[in-house]
């Protein structure tokens, strides 16, 4: 474990806590993409199936996996619960969430079948989750770009997620030089994902520094 990896994991953790805390504190789901959150549930469930094999890497690793599975499920439940509590806000969220996720799911499945470390059930699902994670934020970014307005909740959330993705790159560079280890699929999909976020970061930078309106291309 290196510093980049730990800080990356911690910012990933922070992004989830920011999301949960804000939903609970403000009682608002405004600006959140239900689809992106549902994709994360699929991602963590398909990637962390190895928990069932009891081949534990470390306590840290297993606890983090359980946290990501549990928290992603909890967020979807929180969003789903707002259907009864705030029917109008819920309806607005679903109406604004128009990104076609079936392309992301289908594309990730094709990538997983083509690129995997082994043509086995666990490995194909692992690869699927890696590709799906690289694009899972798109419905959220699409929603943000359509509304044209910046919601501080979603901005902080996406920002923390983007830091997590960015920190994984120096982590891989570190691992390559220090451990001589390269996870090719994780690196390639991670770069794709970081490029998606860098687009957001660029817009965010322009907005914060120059005070212009948030608009994603």
């Amino acid at each position: 474990m290196n510093l980049f990896r730990i800080l990356g994991d911690l910012s990933h953790l922070a992004s989830i806590l920011i999301l949960i805390r804000t939903i609970k504190a403000t009682d608002s789901i405004d600006g959140i993409s239900f689809k992106t959150q549902a994709l994360y549930v699929i991602i963590f469930f398909t990637r962390y199936l190895d928990l069932l094999t009891f081949q534990h890497i470390s306590i840290y690793n297993s606890l983090m996996k359980l946290f990501f599975i549990g928290s992603s499920l909890y967020i979807v439940i929180l969003l789903q619960r707002s259907k009864a509590i705030q029917p109008i806000a819920y309806r607005e969220m679903i109406m604004a969430d128009t990104f076609k996720v079936q392309y992301l799911l289908g594309g990730s499945l094709i990538m997983a079948l083509l690129f995997n470390y082994k043509f086995s059930f666990f490995e194909i699902l692992w690869s699927f989750s890696i590709w799906l994670e690289s694009v899972a934020i798109l419905p959220q970014l699409f929603m943000l770009s359509k509304s044209g307005k910046s919601k501080s909740l979603t901005i902080h959330y996406i920002f923390a997620l983007g830091i997590y993705r960015t920190l994984y790159i120096p982590n891989w560079i570190w691992r390559y030089f220090v451990e001589g280890k390269v996870d090719k699929l994780a690196v390639i999909s991670g770069i794709v994902q970081t490029l998606i976020y860098s687009d957001f970061f660029y817009i965010y930078y322009k907005k914060v520094i120059k005070g212009s309106n948030l608009q994603l291309p």
Binding site: R47, Q55, N61, M64, F68, K118, E123, D183
Partner: peptide
């Protein structure tokens, strides 16, 4: 089993 690859990153 040995058929599973260990992915040590999250």
């Amino acid at each position: 089993s040995s058929s599973t690859i260990m992915h040590d990153e999250l």
